[in-house]
Nucleic acid binder design. Structure first.
Lengths: 145, 145
DNA sequence: ATTTCTGCAAAAGGTTTGCAAAGCG
DNA sequence: CGCTTTGCAAACCTTTTGCAGAAAT
């Protein structure tokens, strides 16, 4: 956790604690869409007494501070990722659950227009594509053959 | 529930039951994004002995038959809506939770290209916009003033 | 008649909360 | 030091499951 992270927490009126640094590090290192339990397991390696409820509370804190984003990828639990990472979207395989990230040049102008037309102020865009990944498609084909 | 609904269930190898008809009717009448409990409460009006687990099992059945779609709008529970309705997306107000549906002419060509580029077969597109609705934005502005 | 489906109650996730002790500013 | 945050255990809420009886084909 570097200075800019700490600054964001302070700006949100939150204290800097070792647990918060660990959780953020775990999410940063995790490389996208980790769930609470994965974050917990990773962070616990550095601090065995860390509790799962602290992880949940920290996730909320980081969300409030605008540092991470919550994903709803269709599974029963939530996933989290850093907010400053490059804007990207998610493809989820409905067969094996694999998540692939992809970029798509969303037109800023288009979004502004949409927001204006429907009269709301946008803060997040979630584009999720659902379908079959290459591997599962291959299996499906074989099955039908 | 009309003949075409029954046909879809039969095609999926499912039986026609009064509970399934009721649940589908509740979703159809509900006008988009109902959660399991709302569906339960609505359907229960017609059949007081209906159980919540039957609603959940029916939701799964209808999903398998391709008749309804599951939404992940950021709340802790899922929402469901008819699959045959016009393609649309959702705006969710992060303050009050209100959901507004909107249409957006997704380029079919673009989607095909995306699927090809990343090598997956698309079946669903979920575009969810998060932000502040007109009303909440007004309140926010007043608060800051 | 056979097989699927339902209702009930209990279990199983994931997430939140109350409280006393510990830690940050 | 005062107030926030943590760890633990228990509670909570949504969703799933086992089983015996009921309904559909």
């Amino acid at each position: 956790m570097d200075e800019s992270d700490k600054k964001m927490l302070r700006r949100a009126g939150k204290r800097i604690t070792s647990q918060r640094m660990l959780v953020l590090e775990a999410i940063r290192e995790g490389g996208g869409h980790l769930d609470a339990d994965e974050i917990y397991r990773r962070a616990k390696l550095q601090a065995p007494r860390l509790s799962l409820s602290t992880v949940y509370r920290t996730i909320n804190t980081l969300k409030e501070a605008g540092m991470i984003e919550e994903l709803h990828l269709g599974e029963e639990h939530h996933h989290y990722e850093l907010r400053d990472a490059k804007v990207h979207h998610h493809f989820v395989c409905q067969n094996c659950g694999r998540v692939v990230e992809f970029e798509w040049p969303f037109s800023e102008q288009l979004l502004r227009d949409l927001g204006e037309k429907y009269d709301f102020e946008l803060t997040e865009i979630h584009l999720d594509l659902v379908g079959y990944c290459a591997e599962c498609r291959r299996k499906k084909t074989n099955r039908n053959a």
